[in-house]
Design a binder for these strands. Structure first.
Lengths: 354, 354
DNA sequence: TTGTAGGCGTTATCAG
DNA sequence: CTGATAACGCCTACAA
């Protein structure tokens, strides 16, 4: 059903129908009602091609995400965003990615300022530097620029859409798998590995979820927990890590609430005679982790589809700006359990090709 | 860059450029080369809106899939196909679903004939009735109608695209989880539950994968396997099922290579005092299975994203017919491990809303 | 308050 | 072989 046909049905001209559709006013109440009724009755859907052709709009979306070197976690969301751009550029979605150093607040501020100056039509933001990210969202709100958050959320930020994971639940899941692997007894070591001093909410929530599961399990009596922090910046971190892996020589499992578990795996590998039986559970399918999962040193990895997160973030703007559809304000991606046996179908190069 | 601009650059008219682009011939070699060179140099990308507008084509896709009652497995692929239609109808993809009774060959033949008569522009086929499905693909090939297969494959069928699972690997994964749960010793019962006598390749492959894992594991010495077939059509199937669950009173785990595990779960539930410790692993997130997973009677379910399979199948035609892009000839979806702890994010109503 | 005309980029047709 | 032109459905300006 076209505007022309509707016009004929209503005995008015194209222009009038158009005014009604777009609520541009300057239509008498009577004709407005008549036309509206017909539009509703025939369930008029504008022809997306014709509209796209005449509007010929393009939308500049800027993504502000952490920089990375190949194989690091943040490569994956970036990859997803880029893949989405490839699919959506033909609909007028243009993308620019700005990278900031997640260990440097000034770097974030600099890029955030640059972003604001570019006056984009939409922003994808990874708020890993919480406080500064929140400031940026305020500015964006004031400037009326819609933004989507990926990875972690800023509650009450009025984001167009949040796309991420439930980190608490991710920790619970890790604990469940751990208990299942270690037959629910022994000492479990939680090791946090970071290269900065920033507070990382995601890691914290994963640890809380992990403990929550253990504390509420039937077999808590048979389990001990130890916690350690390793700073990759410190001179003797390797020593510290080795020490943290098996402090009292009775460790049965290690949980690392981040993608950094490959450091632990490497450590275990070179001490396989004393620590070869320790079960390892970590997060994220980065190349280094996958390597040790294949070797059987890491037992489980938990994934949260970071490529999808990126893809969906850009797609949220396509839906919002191009299709003018409502987009869900929150999207929690599934927590995937990855083992040697199902790795191959997750590690696929086009996980987001849907 | 538009055709007009290219025409200007090449000092020819729009028509000539168009002829070169679409290889319609009737262009002198010299101009053809000149125009081609420019097209390549400027990386001309046709405006999808203008093209869509003028072509104003619509494509009738017919899906031929098993009928279902609410809550059965085949509801999920259908749901995915329909969701894809909702998103893609605006691009001219029209869908009709024909349902056949998977327990009745004549029903399939009837619907297949109907399908052929409708002369669709594309077909989505679930080849659960193997032999007849293969016949249909031959007819479609002869009629030059592209088709995509979902759920299971027909090798060498020249399908546009196969979208499904690796059933063998799914079985291996189930075995791995089972061994992990039962501490790798005891008697494991494989129970096949069907309501027909048809050969089901998928079930067979899952069982083979399951056994393959067990046979090649280090602890095979500590494991016994029993196999049972239950026919839901038979008068005393409930009795048979109870018997199959724990024949020698030493069963520690039950594997059901299909979505039918809820029958086993129900049986276990009503014999919880004698069989409450048996670990259950099955397939597919249908409502009945989810219920028992939540209750903790089923320990793991393995999912293969049936909604996605449906979605991707219809999308493959959008990509092929509308965007004229190459589509991957095979797509194996990940084998998801579902437990109580990550169920909520898989059981989401819009898993395919990407 | 209403109607009309021109144009978006592409395709297809028709006349040269 | 080549060029001009109408049409697709919608939007916007401008005319009435």
């Amino acid at each position: 059903m076209t505007i022309k046909e509707i016009a004929k049905l209503a005995n008015v001209s194209l222009g009038t129908v158009d005014r009604v559709i777009h609520k541009r006013g300057k239509v008498s109440k009577k004709t407005e009602e008549k036309v509206s009724a017909i539009i509703k009755k025939v369930n008029y859907q504008p022809n997306i091609y014709a509209r796209g052709l005449v509007l010929n709009k393009s939308y500049d979306i800027i993504a502000l995400v952490p920089s990375f070197v190949e194989g690091e976690y943040w490569e994956m969301p970036s990859k997803g965003i880029k893949m989405a751009e490839k699919n959506l550029s033909k609909f007028g979605i243009k993308l620019e990615i700005l990278y900031f150093d997640q260990n440097s607040v000034p770097s974030f501020i600099e890029k955030a300022d640059e972003l604001i100056k570019l006056k984009p039509d939409g922003v994808i933001l990874a708020p890993v530097i919480n406080f500064e990210a929140a400031k940026l969202t305020k500015k964006l709100e004031k400037a009326n620029i819609p933004f989507s958050l990926i990875d972690s959320n800023i509650p009450n930020s009025n984001a167009l859409s949040f796309i991420g994971q439930d980190a608490f639940q991710s920790g619970k899941l890790a604990a469940k798998l751990m208990c299942s692997e270690i037959k629910a007894q022994g000492t479990i070591s939680i090791i946090t590995i970071k290269n900065n001093e920033n507070h990382n909410k995601t890691l914290q929530q994963r640890i809380e979820g992990f403990k929550d599961y253990i504390y509420n399990s039937d077999f808590i009596a048979d389990i001990s927990l130890t916690e350690n922090n390793i700073h990759l910046g410190s001179a003797n971190w390797e020593e510290c890590l080795t020490q943290a892996c098996n402090p009292d020589n009775d460790t049965v499992g290690i949980f690392v609430p981040s993608s950094m578990i490959h450091y632990v795996a490497k450590c275990i590998e070179s001490n396989v005679d004393t620590m070869g039986n320790i079960k390892l559970i970590g997060n994220d399918l980065i190349a280094n982790n996958v390597k040790y999962l294949k070797k059987g040193i890491i037992n489980y990895l938990i994934g949260q589809r970071p490529e999808n997160q990126g893809y969906l973030a850009l797609e949220s703007f396509y839906k919002h700006l191009v299709l003018e559809k409502q987009v869900p304000s929150e999207k929690y991606l599934p927590l995937d359990i990855i083992t040697q046996e199902n790795l191959m179908y997750y590690n696929d190069d086009d996980v987001v090709s849907m």
